[in-house]
Design a protein around this nucleic acid. Structure first.
Lengths: 124, 124
DNA sequence: TCGCATTGATTACATGTGTAGTCAACAGAA
DNA sequence: TTCTGTTGACTACACATGTAATCAATGCGA
């Protein structure tokens, strides 16, 4: 559940591809990400190796290729990063974060409605 | 207003000291942070130099020392990091973040009350 | 069977980061 | 005036990260 090793920016791009669909071969992952990022397939393979070394993904042999899959659920990663983030910048308190984002006009009417629903659920 | 250069973890510790009180000499900053972190004063000076190079802080000469002060307001930094964060992990949408944090039991009753107040203000 | 294309493994290299040591200048004590 | 301690500047060095090139094995087409 806990995500021990750090996932770097570039590694996260690869993880998003695997979270979106897995298992994938290195070539598949590259197909998903080289478009936006302009990486070579070698770069993707390096990132896959590093993620393997960190035990964040695993690979199952399929003939002479590997099929890569996440070992960490996106929800778990997001949960741990969210916690780290509010601790780092908001002393663990969430309402200042919301106030912050509200001030940046990052909250849509839908967000507000949704938040009210969430809060209602929490109070009961 | 925008924070161009990245502030690393260690640098952020120094920034927090300067945001808390400024201007400070290198020795003052070290006094604030070496306790928790076990850094030598040299480490603090290196971090100050790097922050200077990034134009995140400035220094005014005071005799043969320098008095360091932030060039970036904490609010601006927090705003830009918050935006970056919700974009990276929540596709820019905030309600999933709140739902996430709520699920981690990171929301206290006070938080909930405060959030309701914020939302009320936003709707009017 | 033999060469080529594919694939993982290894190596490369510049830049950032954490963590400091050393040096040179200068101000104040003796 | 000389010694010494303080201070910023410069240098160091290992590990992380971004971005790949190259190598070696191997399976498949000719």
């Amino acid at each position: 559940m806990a995500v021990s090793e750090k996932i770097s920016e570039a590694e996260l791009v690869v993880m998003e591809a695997l979270w979106h669909r897995a298992p994938l071969t290195a070539a598949d992952v590259a197909g998903q990400v080289t478009a936006d990022r302009g990486w070579s397939i070698q770069t993707v393979k390096t990132l896959l190796s590093r993620l393997m070394a960190k035990d964040i993904i695993a690979a199952d042999q399929d003939g002479r290729r590997f099929l890569y899959r996440p070992m960490v659920a996106r929800e778990d990663y997001v949960a741990s990063e969210s916690g780290r983030f509010v601790n780092r910048l908001f002393g663990g308190r969430i309402s200042p974060l919301i106030a912050q984002l509200a001030q940046q006009d990052q909250l849509t009417a839908d967000d507000i409605a949704e938040l009210e629903g969430i809060l209602k659920g929490l109070k009961s």
